[in-house]
Amino acid sequence: MINPHLSMNWQRVTIYICLSFFLIFFLAPLYVMLVTSFKSLEEIRESSLMLLPSEWIFDGWMKAWDHACVGLSCNGVKPHFMATFSITIPALLLAVFLGAINGYALTQWKFKGSDLLLAGLMMGCFMPFQLYLIPIAVTLREMGIFGTALGLILLHTVYGVPLTTLLFRNYYVSLPKELIKAALIDGAGFFRIFFQVVLPLSPSIVMVSVILIFTGIYNDFIFALTFGEVGKQPVMAALNNIVNSTYGVKEHNVNMAATLLTALPTLLIYLVAGKFFIRGLTSGAIKG
């Protein structure tokens, strides 16, 4: 006779062994980055990769933040953070807002060809960016916003909208139709219904969109590199510049510190909003 508790324990042990393995597997690189960023260059050269620093030195972090060289200017990643946020925040707000409006219109105000429009928008989710680098470059040049923050805002808004539209559509498709009808009878119009009835019902899906779009824009490298303003590239492009600079000594501590600094905002947003993210995803899954 097998003791059910014992077998449960064995299952547990196996699960925990597996989980621990994966935990180490995924956390080891982060650990290496962290300890390396606090070592001096000599120590990096001489000691083992996995050892804690014999002396904790913040030089790498200071330099990465303040005076590492990106191209010709040596101001660290600091100014590029500003550039990134001045692009990310407007584009994020626009993409989420437009996606919400689209999702609401496509589900509650169905018109002839609305399903076709949605299918078209969805295509936008699956196209690789590289495909239209040159057409975009030409378009931005013709619009006179090539190499400006405005160009990147426009670009990220346009490429964020399909995803947010899809998210909001799937959320709103399960919204009871009678709610909209009741508001219509009450005399509310398209936007009043959206702002006062529909939007207050959607905080979780707004959070999901914000997280996805924020990380999408923040982590974008190819647009940042191609269309970023010279000297004010978004931080991802700047990071690449720091890490891949080919002259001089490879400053591993600076590189690690710069990378960690750059990764911090996305890490924070998942930690702060992860709860909403999971809630939003699951509620969307159940309803949609």
Binding site: P176, E178, L179, K181, A182, A183, L184, I185, D186, G187, Q196, V197
Partner: peptide
């Protein structure tokens, strides 16, 4: 609907 001077109660009540 709002120009018809009618009002409606729904099966699900549809309260906001």
């Amino acid at each position: 609907p709002k120009e018809r001077n009618i009002s409606m109660v729904f099966q699900s009540y549809a309260l906001y």
